[in-house]
Design a protein around this nucleic acid. Structure first.
Length: 823
RNA sequence: GCCCAGGUGGCGGAAUGGUAUACGCACAGGACUUAAAAUCCUGGGCUCGUAAGAGAUUGAGGGUUCGAGUCCCUCCCUGGGCACCA
């Protein structure tokens, strides 16, 4: 018998697949479509790691399953090739990022093929190519034209190592997402003029559409929390003695009569006006400076040590309870709810601030329980967020109501008396899309002294990123592009006068917010994508990844919705199903990392055990949403399983023919077809594989008992098994399919057909319980009646003993499963 | 602090409210072999027992049910996300 040699088999089939284009998807095929993909790969010199092996195998298995089922299945491939690491490498090594990508990407081609992934290489894309980023720039222009792109000077997180600003979500534990190791410094804040996309305009619809998504729950929750919708009341106040209006937002307006002071953010633009020319000017400015320094000192952790100072100003009796003093306070978030808020005894933070600075409080709500209420009064503790708390001070008709039920009446009262209006606030901020770096898509803007910022006309796109010799940022906060004077100095598209190009490039998250659409029409030179093709293929049927659960997913949804509104796309949501899969860690649970030197190289594993064994192990180790601890013994274990299939098929082919049928092996096959098909449909790959292992065990037992009797039965079982295992071990499956005498590849349109009637056993094991405890098991004909089973049970010695002659009070009978006698 | 997701043998894990520990790994014994590797077969899994067998057991405690790993309540622990958002 030919020995299973994955090295030979895998090479052979990789070559055949490449030559015959089996994985090329016909986007205009009459077959039903299926598109399964994992998040974009960021190409680096290091090549693929075990995390890639995990991610792309997940989507590949599904793509293969659907292809075998007869779908036009598309498993796209592309490169998220813009971004900082390539640029940093260029600075260090003096090789242009363009050059690096030319060297790195072909290397990935080989590695992807070695993993046996069924990618359609004819539609490969890379975000750093002008053919691609022309449309990334076009998206910016469309956003600009729609009023969704704007420029603003803002305090931004700045990474000194990257020499660029970072979006909020790129700051992780006070550090840059690229530089978050122990010896990296924390990010700082700087005021930088930035381009923004107004994603907040879409906050509501993004939030509303979230519930209906078939996505991993944690990701949906994370998105909702990120958007952070809050409903409440926006109050408008007048500052006493000054003609200044201020607004504050309150999501818990029930206790408005308890407000005794107000706080304003130190960064608030009106602070200067409040204090100008008063004796408070000096102390306030000192406090503002002190707080600013603290923030620059990277005080990211929630600062328990809240600080503030009185401004000397008051709000003119806003609630009929007197004037409210205005304080500067460190804890006020500047860009939420206007950076100004009124405070009461019923908020923990406000309470702590008031205690620290001896500001009088006026609690208006107390516990129902009289003793507890007295305690709150006596001890002066902060009593908050209890829906059962009773309001003691409130407008007429509302006094005495519970906090939980007073909300609506109070809001109506506030609106009726014109103190404030209903309002909705979001935690989500607009998307900062400018990066002061070279290696990205240039922002298609030209500045003209006469006309201001002007969009580069669509016919002049792409604004090609010039190749440079030096990629070091210019040092003044601008990118290396600032030095490319030939490129920077251009004519204004409006007046023809002197102009200069924007030297910021676009955040790479824009590149990855629409690439799934470009996959559907990668070579189009007139449009980003063809609408008819996109309407047929969108949304993406399956998407997975182990990172970027919040920002990337939200941005992709935003851009897709934007296209949808523009009429470029029928569908509004990009990803029908999203699996947030687990990562692979070292066997001790530690993250793999270069510095720890504990990595596992997939290519080494393939060289030793084959890609099929690696793929099968990764998909078998655990449910896909759990993290997997790498087990060095796992891959050989999966290899043994594959080897058993190999042996069964070869031994079968060498055995003498027979005409006798074997019902058992037919039943094993149908049972497994049913289980594997259902499990693949819901990505329960681990149990799909274990059911195939059971089938192999059963076939081996049956072979030992009756040899390969019934050639057609055995052939059916083995061919079914080969088809079922093909998504996981595609190379071996194609080899065995050929050995079994087929001339075509098993990869297309070959999935075994289930006959439900052949799954049923004729005899089942039925459990007999006495008072809910298992006391015996009976072999009964499938579908046996209650009476028949009870009669059998009462004959059984063990059950007789357990019953001990007592009277049966109640009988629970579940056909083919269980009989419970209650005595 | 808030919001998710979890907690099952030595380990990874399985189980529409119905035989808990499938499947795999590791381990032990055996077959083949001069030997090893590879392969194949068998086995126990916690406690008691030589054994047949009996009992316990799904983080802890309560509840619903004929029956709970699964449903409800309280608590503990782990992982992840958010975090001064009024």
């Amino acid at each position: 018998m030919k020995k299973y040699n994955p090295k030979v088999v895998e090479k052979k089939w990789q070559k055949i697949w490449q030559e015959t284009d089996v994985y090329k998807a016909d986007l205009h095929s009459a077959k039903p479509k299926y598109i399964s993909m994992s998040m974009f790969n960021y190409p680096s010199g290091a090549g693929i790691h075990i995390g890639h092996a995990m991610n792309y195998t997940i989507s590949d298995v599904l793509a293969r399953f659907k292809r075998q089922q007869g779908y036009e299945s598309y498993h796209p491939v592309g490169w998220d090739s813009f971004g900082l690491p390539a640029e940093n490498y260029a600075i260090k090594a003096g090789v242009s990022p363009q050059e690096s990508m030319r060297a790195i990407i072909p290397n990935y081609h080989k590695q992807y093929q070695a993993m046996g992934w069924s990618n359609d290489w004819s539609k490969e894309i890379a975000t750093h190519t002008p053919e691609y980023y022309r449309w990334t720039q076009w998206i910016f222009s469309e956003m600009y034209r729609a009023g969704l792109a704007y420029q603003d000077a803002r305090l931004q997180w700045w990474c000194d190592k990257c020499q660029t600003v970072l979006a909020n979500e790129q700051v992780i534990n006070a550090k840059c997402w690229r530089h978050d190791s122990a010896d990296d410094v924390e990010v700082q804040q700087r005021e930088v003029k930035q381009w923004f996309f107004k994603i907040t305009d879409y906050a509501d619809e993004l939030l509303e559409a979230t519930d209906a998504l078939d996505w991993t729950d944690t990701v949906k929750t994370a998105q909702k929390n990120w958007i952070g919708r809050s409903e409440g009341v926006l109050f408008t106040f007048t500052v006493k003695d000054l003609n200044i209006q201020l607004q504050s937002y309150d999501s818990v307006p029930q206790t408005f009569k308890a407000q005794t002071f107000a706080v304003i953010a130190p960064e608030h633009p009106l602070v200067q006006q409040l204090i100008a020319g008063t004796e408070h000017e000096q102390p306030v400015l000192e406090m503002v400076e002190q707080i600013r320094k603290k923030k620059l000192g990277n005080k990211f952790e929630v600062d328990k040590d809240i600080e503030g100072v009185f401004t000397g100003r008051y709000l003119q009796d806003p609630f009929g309870t007197g004037d409210l003093p205005i304080w500067i306070a460190s804890f006020v978030v500047a860009d939420y709810g206007g950076g100004f808020v009124t405070c009461s005894a019923h908020d923990e933070r406000d309470f702590a601030f008031a205690k620290k600075y001896n500001i009088p409080l006026r609690p208006v709500m107390f516990p129902q329980d009289k003793d507890l209420a007295q305690q709150v009064r006596d001890l002066e503790v902060c009593y908050h967020h209890d829906p059962e708390g009773v309001l003691e001070q409130a407008p007429e008709g509302i006094v005495g109501m519970k906090w939980g039920e007073a909300r609506e009446p109070i809001i109506r009262y506030i609106e009726d008396t014109k103190m404030g209006t209903r309002s909705v606030q979001y935690k989500m901020r607009d998307w900062s899309v400018s990066r002061q770096r070279y290696w990205g898509a240039p922002i298609p803007i030209i500045y003209c002294e006469q006309c201001g910022p002007q969009l580069v006309s669509d016919s002049d796109l792409p604004v090609v990123l010039p190749e440079l010799d030096n990629f070091q940022p210019s040092g003044d906060g601008r990118s290396a592009l600032a030095r490319a004077t030939d490129w920077v100095n251009v004519l204004c598209p409006k007046c023809g006068g002197a102009g200069t190009r924007e030297t910021d490039t676009l955040d790479t998250y824009i590149c990855s917010s629409w690439y799934f659409l470009r996959y559907l029409d990668p070579h189009n030179t007139d449009k980003p994508f063809d609408k008819l093709t996109a309407d047929r293929w969108m949304p993406v049927d399956f998407y997975n990844g182990a990172d970027h659960a919040t920002a990337h997913m939200l941005y992709a949804r935003f851009v897709t919705r934007f296209f949808h509104k523009k009429g470029l796309l029928d569908t509004a949501e990009p990803f029908k199903r999203f699996l947030f899969n687990g990562k692979v860690t070292a066997s001790d649970g530690q993250m793999f990392s270069k510095s720890k030197g504990n990595g596992v190289d997939p290519l080494e594993i393939i060289a030793e055990h084959g890609a099929d064994a690696l793929r099968t192990y990764l998909m078998f180790a655990a449910p896909l949403d759990l993290w997997v601890k790498w087990d060095a013994q796992g891959v050989p274990g999966a290899g043994r399983f594959l080897n058993r299939i190999w042996s069964l098929v070869h031994e079968f082919l060498q055995s003498p023919e027979s005409v006798a049928e074997n019902e058992k092996v037919i039943r094993f096959a149908h049972k497994t077809i049913k289980k594997v098909t259902a499990d693949l449909e819901s990505q329960k790959y681990n149990t799909a594989i274990s059911s195939m292992m059971e089938m192999v065990n059963n076939l081996n037992t049956e072979k030992a008992e009756s040899a390969f009797t019934g050639t057609s039965s055995w052939r059916f079982a083995l061919e079914s098994l080969v088809q079922l295992v093909a998504p996981f071990a595609p190379h071996m499956a194609d080899e065995l399919w050929e050995v079994l005498g087929h001339e075509d590849s098993v990869q297309k349109d070959h999935w075994p057909v289930l006959d439900e009637s052949l799954v049923r056993e004729s005899v089942v094991t039925l459990v007999v319980q006495v008072n809910g405890k298992v006391r015996g098991k009976l072999s009964v004909a499938t579908g046996s009646s209650e009476e028949a089973v009870i009669a059998m049970a009462k004959e059984d010695e063990k059950i007789k003993a357990a019953l001990g002659g007592s009277e049966t009070k109640r009988v629970i009978f579940v056909p083919d499963k269980l009989l419970n006698l209650v005595v």
